[in-house]
């Protein structure tokens, strides 16, 4: 058995395969479709201070090898998350990473204050990059000063590892990654969705209600890899790779480029056991290639 475990600061993962926020609900929805405990961790649907109803329909539109989504951070709110969703997650033997979102820095702070006493939450992923809400969202990861300030403010109130989730909708993502590091983040995860758009030529209306939306799926993987590469080359911080990962080979590309862990996103909509299969495949791959530990692959890119 190869050692697939990964450490990101104080966060210990039994393997490097996570499921991405907003693509796996609160875990329980997929309990009969996959072995949740096979995963290295579950990143929850974004949690905000108050319940959010989300954007009007249509919220999604399928494209060749990709999709647009504009859900608008629909979620039950932190209090209901704690009372109704967390008990199920707490019983699992996989890391639970709460994805935290808000319209203002104070909202992030209040959500983390409420979550922090719950030991079953291993870490926070800070959603600095939702493209589909009017306030907050992207703004927190398009200006390095804001990224650093907000990260620092949250760093000061929690001991738990912080992972800043970054947007690709910026010229130099490594500047934001550096700002997150300077603010005290333990890791960065990237990429969130690309801003995209599609038009119905019959009705001349946008295919998604909010006009622009988040583009994800296998089509965005090359962009994601290039962004991960940029951060790995320029900033000394662990990177969690996200973007169009559908199978083991996709995940290996991210590991080789330098990501210490990956998140499976859109693939969960088609097959929630994608992550579980990837863990099995990764183990076989390591054993078959004489690799004792996943760390031997990470950052092994030959340039």
């Amino acid at each position: 058995m190869a050692d697939l475990s990964v450490s990101i600061g104080k966060l210990k993962l039994k393997n490097p395969v996570l499921v991405a926020s907003g693509t796996f609900g609160y875990g329980q929805e997929s309990r009969a479709l996959t072995d949740l405990n096979a995963l290295g961790g579950i990143v929850t649907k974004s949690v905000t201070l108050k319940r959010r109803d989300g954007n009007p329909p249509p919220r999604i539109f399928e494209l060749p090898a990709g999709m647009l989504n504009s859900i608008g951070l629909a979620n039950v709110g932190v209090d209901t998350f704690i009372s109704e969703k967390l008990p199920f997650l707490s019983e699992l033997s996989t890391a639970i990473i709460a994805n935290v979102a808000g319209s203002t820095p104070e909202e992030y702070l209040q959500v983390i204050e409420k979550l922090d006493e719950h030991d079953s939450i291993s870490a926070y992923e800070l959603n600095f990059s939702c493209p589909n809400v009017k306030q907050g969202g992207l703004a927190f990861s398009q200006d390095p000063k804001v990224t650093q300030q907000v990260t620092r403010m949250l760093r000061d109130i929690t001991e738990k590892p912080l992972i800043a989730k970054l947007t690709p909708n910026i010229t130099r993502v490594s500047e934001i990654a550096q700002a997150a590091k300077d603010g005290g983040a333990d890791a960065v995860s990237l990429i969130n969705t690309l801003v995209g758009m599609a038009v119905n030529t019959q009705t001349r209306k946008p295919q998604v209600h909010t006009v622009t939306a988040g583009y994800s799926g296998p089509a965005v993987k090359p962009v994601a890899l290039a962004k991960v590469f940029e951060v790995v080359q320029n900033v000394d911080i662990p990177v969690v790779g996200i973007g169009g990962i559908m199978n083991l080979n996709d995940a290996l590309e991210f590991f080789i480029t330098g990501a210490c862990a990956v998140q499976v996103g859109t693939a969960n909509f088609i097959d929630p056991s994608t992550g579980e299969k990837m863990v099995g495949g990764l183990n076989d791959y390591c054993n078959g290639n004489g690799i004792d530990a996943i760390s031997e692959i990470v950052g092994s890119l030959k340039l």
Partner: peptide, 12 residues
Amino acid sequence: MGCGFGICVGCP
């Protein structure tokens, strides 16, 4: 629908 079982929240 994106998923059909409540995880994508795309079919309100």
